[in-house]
Design a protein around this nucleic acid. Structure first.
Lengths: 106, 106
DNA sequence: CATTTAAGAAACCATTCGGTTGCAAATATA
DNA sequence: TATATTTGCAACCGAATGGTTTCTTAAATG
């Protein structure tokens, strides 16, 4: 099964999990408490995030703490870079203005 | 069918299409020439991208030119913002160093 | 030592996804 | 006008996805 970070962040629950554990590590049960879904479902999401190395585990007794490997998020940033150059250019700002005028005329 | 930009960029072909038409508008046939897939398959991807307003159409005779609405890419950037703050912090750089040392010990 | 709790793994199911094939509509060309 | 080209749309198919249920393992608790 080929997975990458773009597929990983496609699911809204996974994005929410990422945000949730960005600042502090959490156990699957604690994470699941934040969603209207079962623990097993969250566990599956965590497995996918772990496979993509977006998340890392840390066993502590019978509990497993999951935390974000934030540097992995940079991969998205790197892909975005090519578009950032475009949207920051003056030409594109002009284009936006023109399309806004077009809309107002309609 | 609920779609958002994160689902749209999950597919590698769609990401390639986005990059391809980022700088110049192209017709479906011209786009399809760049991939090992059928025109109809590309057409489906374009429909999804259009639904998400990542791409806009411009009819010209019987041809339809597709181009990127680059400002839509900012939505990804906005989501990334929360993590950028974390990965740019000194604390996290230190964390990375520590985990690297950990790996070397193993 | 028996019970409870935390968590992963496997099996199953309905839905979605990406792709192909075939067809229809609209425009260009001879 | 007849033909070719460009494109979108609908139907279909196999694979993947997200979720639930059930089961097992391992650690904590009484």
């Amino acid at each position: 099964m080929r997975r990458d970070i773009f597929q990983a962040i496609a699911d809204p629950t996974r994005r929410a999990i990422i945000t949730l554990i960005a600042l502090q590590a959490m156990t699957p049960n604690a994470i699941a408490d934040n969603f209207n879904t079962t623990r097993q479902s969250v566990s599956k999401h965590l497995r996918i995030l772990t496979e993509c190395e977006i998340v890392k585990q840390e066993q502590q007794g019978r509990e497993i703490y999951y935390s974000l490997q934030v540097q992995k998020m940079k991969e998205i940033d790197i892909w975005l870079e090519q578009f950032r150059k475009i949207w920051e250019s003056r030409f594109n700002q002009l284009d936006t203005v023109l399309s806004t005028i077009k809309k107002q005329k309609k």
